[in-house]
Computed example of a mutant assay.
Amino acid sequence: MKLIHYIGIALLVLVAFQSCKKDETQARLHPTESVKAAALTLDKNNLTLSKATANDTVLLLNLVQPDFGYQAAVTNVIQFGRKGDNFKTVKEVVIPNGHSAIGFTGYELNSYLLALGVPTGEASDFDIRLKSSINAKIAPVFSTISGLKASPYASTSYLYAIGAYEDWVEANAESLISPTSNGIYSGIIYFPEGKLTFKLTPERNWSNSYGETEPGKIVYNGGQDIKAPRTGNLELEVNTTANTIIFKDHSWGVIGSATPKGWDADTDMKYDNANQVWKLTVNLTAGAIKFRKNHEWGTNFGGANGNLVAGGADIAVANAGTYDIILDLNANTYTLTKK
């Protein structure tokens, strides 16, 4: 009986010991205990960026991995913010797994800094830190902040929409333009019936891309195909800082007694993305035409002799025939060329 009694006591002690060990392990999972943030260092703290060094590595960041108190896959993200803004507006760049250093070309760094809304041609101060996380349940940890003074330069950057509307041919992808590389891109694309899906890429290839996580939300190198909300001409506005995409109605058409639908409805034009003009080949009769935006009279152009006038007089068409029409809203001109 004594032997059984001693064995029982031993088992209780063992269970209690194992329970304590388990509690110790759980305690180490707590985000406020035994967590050591990553360390981040920059190889320089003052830069003047230029187009001449756009393809050179201009900034190198080195990091020491964080320690969460146990083995886990860590996601590290570089955060760029304006000095003193406390990262309210932030540009994030994911560091590939296993890397202890990351270099940025002049073009890349220039784009990231301009995304924060700073002026070009003059020095601005930035804060840079590393955000480390393992999952949504554990709070991320941040490195100490490193300072950078840099002068971005004015530049134009592009995104490309590879998709069903152009049969997924990379070379034929239409472009979205950011005139100042501030992370906000816009462009107009025509989506035919049943061909609404696409992805956005920094180059006309699949090395990197933006997909959709939900309507209006995009993610870098992830997500599903983005889907336009309807057929027709749509203006896309993409913000790669906020990771959003907005679709707006944006179409131009001709209307008038010379057009196939008369004054009752527009004959829609198609946007030439590469040349940023609107085009249409159509049979016209002798009569008159005007140009309208979004099938409404709120924005319309008339004119004469190839010059557009907002709300101006009807444009005369002297002879019936097939015409190539070009509407250039940048130059404020139009052409009617009889074939």
Rank of each mutant, 00 (worst) to 15 (best):
G121L: 04
G306H: 06
V277C: 08
N300R: 03
A274S: 15
D268V: 04
V141P: 00
T105M: 02
A164F: 04
Y112H: 12
N332G: 11
G187E: 04
Y220C: 04
T322C: 12
K261Q: 14
K199C: 08
V169T: 15
H30A: 09
S143E: 09
I4E: 10
N300D: 13
I145F: 10
D328K: 09
Q18G: 04
K36L: 09
V277D: 09
S19L: 10
W278Y: 12
S175T: 11
H30V: 01
G256V: 05
T197H: 13
A136G: 10
G147D: 06
T259Q: 00
A101I: 00
G103N: 07
L159V: 06
A52K: 08
D314I: 00
I177Q: 12
F17I: 08
G223L: 03
S111Q: 12
G163F: 05
L11I: 13
V282E: 08
L336M: 14
P202G: 09
S186Q: 13
P140V: 03
Y190E: 14
L40F: 13
S257P: 00
I246A: 10
T144G: 15
N55L: 11
E24V: 11
V309L: 11
S157F: 05
A150W: 07
G84M: 06
T144L: 14
K51V: 12
F104S: 02
L148I: 07
I95S: 13
F87C: 07
Y107N: 12
I162M: 13
E214Y: 10
H250N: 14
R204Q: 15
D249L: 15
G69R: 00
Y153R: 01
P96D: 09
G311D: 13
V13P: 03
F17E: 10
T105N: 10
E237Q: 12
V77Y: 07
G84T: 03
D56W: 01
N239A: 07
I7Y: 11
L109R: 04
D266M: 08
L63H: 03
A313C: 01
L327Y: 06
W206L: 14
G194T: 06
Y107V: 01
T156S: 15
N307W: 07
G163K: 02
G98Y: 03
T241V: 10
A27L: 11
T48Q: 14
I246T: 13
K22Q: 14
S133W: 00
A286P: 06
T231H: 13
A101C: 04
A115H: 01
E92W: 04
V90F: 03
A258E: 00
K149S: 15
E214P: 06
T281S: 15
N294R: 02
P66F: 11
A150S: 14
N55F: 03
A242Q: 12
Q18I: 09
Q18P: 02
I325V: 09
